[in-house]
Design a protein around this nucleic acid. Structure first.
Lengths: 132, 132
DNA sequence: CTTGAAGTTGACGTGCACGTCATGTAATTA
DNA sequence: TAATTACATGACGTGCACGTCAACTTCAAG
């Protein structure tokens, strides 16, 4: 929480992860904490990246896929030649995410219909459901 | 493809999965193929369930979570008392999916912005991108 | 000074979702 | 009859994403 960065403990509390997880992410080159002596100091950038990592996970991306995605957020740090390739990758990833969103929407609709159906069925049987 | 059901091979081709996967899903009680002698015969219902299984996987649900979800689609087969509980579970799941959709949408927006940014940056460097 | 909290590096363990043999059977096909 | 083809059942292996435990260092507080 100091202006020098965030300790591993602070990161863990904030993001609800274990130290093991953060070290693991470092090993997989998803995070790049600075070393102060022996200890890790996570930067603002690491915080931002971790947010994206956890979000990616919720969508079922693998850590390797997330690592690719993160590079997209680091365009400024990259060589121009590599950027073009990364950009292409970003477009693909975007399409995949949009497809996923569309499918998710239809799944939600399916589920909603099913719930209405079940609700009616239960009502017809005189079963009371917990009020919202 | 006959009116008696679908062989494991037919299922595999149609859904791009291995026999191992289908047997595994049976073991985990996600599918319930009928036995004709020793061989499995997958029913229309199994086909429908497999579609939902694969969709669920794309959203990062575990097989166990998917199994719960599938029960929701089988309300007709269940006891009324159990249905209420299942219904509650469905509502929770629905909320989770809607949350996920919203987050996915914002992630897509983030990514789009980032892509526009990268695009402009690349253009400013005179790099040519593959046309769509 | 020592004690305790917080952090470190290995190294091995674990749950999930299958992959990959090895081996066997049952029904066509040459 | 012999050989595919398609399926079956174990049983062990694998990649991912960490969990867990042992042993060690650092440092502020009592």
């Amino acid at each position: 929480m100091t202006d020098t960065g965030y300790s591993i403990g602070e990161m863990c509390k904030e993001f609800q992860v274990t130290p093991r997880t953060l070290r693991f992410y470092e090993a997989k080159e998803l995070l790049f904490p600075v070393r102060i002596g022996q200890k890790r100091l996570f930067t603002k950038r690491d915080r931002a990246r971790l947010k994206l990592i956890l979000r990616g996970k919720r969508f079922g991306f693998s850590l390797e896929e997330i690592r690719q995605l993160l590079n997209l957020y680091d365009l400024g740090d990259q060589q121009v030649t590599q950027m073009a390739r990364t950009y292409e990758l970003g477009l693909e990833r975007l399409k995949a995410m949009e497809d996923q969103r569309d499918e998710l929407n239809s799944a939600i609709n399916d589920l909603k219909e099913q719930l209405v159906w079940g609700e009616d069925f239960l009502a017809s049987k005189g079963v009371k459901l917990a009020a919202e």
